[in-house]
């Protein structure tokens, strides 16, 4: 099928390294766009901060704006103590934002539309929370699972539910980002496909194709919003979970 809406998510090997110690370490289009996201984010911040003008240039004020944005988000959610995680949260935010935005270019690959990528990012967050929580608070970190004021006979049940709820965090964190990107890109592709197939039907079809064309334009704008919003949501939730690691007590 010419306009298969799933084809855009296909992984292709660019540099095939299919059997390195039993692992497929090929450099794929996904890897390429991950490298591109990292390179673009680094270049943006490097050139943004290269001049260090007292009166910032446009690029510098954009870089400062993104710094302030993430810093205030982290301070609000986890307090000033949370600022030790700033490099981590800022890198995550910039990576997800650039990966999402790269996905908005036609013919570009969307890294975050694959659940394994978003799940790896989410596991990084939860792994940090767990490791740092146990390092800082020891066994008191487990107090996170015991809400206070619960009657004694309900504690085992509530603790089990809280543990499952905690373990479900990386899944919901990754599924949310992945599903938003996947659904948005499929919707775009399907509506764009309508335009083409209706346009092939002759004069009446061309007239009818105007409606999906308007939809495609509107959805493209919405997708830019979603691309930013999902990076924001991912970073906010990261801050909230890190807050649990810093202050697990009730």
């Amino acid at each position: 099928m010419a306009n298969d809406p799933i084809k855009q998510f296909e992984i292709t090997r660019i540099v095939p390294l299919e059997n390195v110690a039993g692992l497929d370490l090929s450099f794929t289009n996904s890897s390429l766009f991950m490298v591109a996201s990292v390179a673009a984010a680094s270049a943006f911040l490097y050139f943004g901060s290269a001049n260090r003008g007292l009166v910032p240039s446009r690029l510098q004020s954009m870089a400062e704006l993104s710094y302030e944005f993430v810093a205030s988000m982290l301070r609000d959610a986890a307090g000033t103590q949370g600022m030790r995680f700033f490099p981590f949260v800022f890198s995550l935010f910039m990576f997800v934002l650039f990966a999402n935005m790269f996905g908005m270019f036609p013919y570009f690959f969307t890294v975050t539309s694959h659940i394994i990528v978003t799940f790896a990012l989410a596991m990084l967050v939860i792994g940090t929370v767990v490791v740092y929580g146990f390092m800082k608070h020891g066994l008191k970190f487990l107090g996170l699972f015991v809400p206070e004021g619960v009657p004694g006979y309900l504690v085992p049940l509530v603790v089990l539910i809280e543990i499952i709820s905690f373990l479900s965090r990386p899944i919901s964190l990754s599924v949310r980002l992945f599903a938003n990107m996947l659904a948005g890109h499929i919707t775009l592709k399907v509506f764009a496909g309508f335009v083409v197939s209706l346009g092939a039907l002759g004069a009446a079809g061309v007239a009818g194709a105007i409606l999906p064309l308007i939809m495609v334009v509107a959805i493209t704008a919405l997708e830019f919003l979603v691309a930013f919003l999902q990076a924001y949501v991912f970073a906010v939730l990261t801050c909230m979970y890190l807050n649990d690691a810093l202050h697990p007590s009730h």
Partner: peptide
């Protein structure tokens, strides 16, 4: 589950959840 200092304040007036 834990809102840090904010959670303390919210929880202060109830029996907890």
């Amino acid at each position: 589950p834990a809102d840090g200092a904010r959670g303390e304040r919210l929880r202060g007036n109830g029996a907890g959840d």
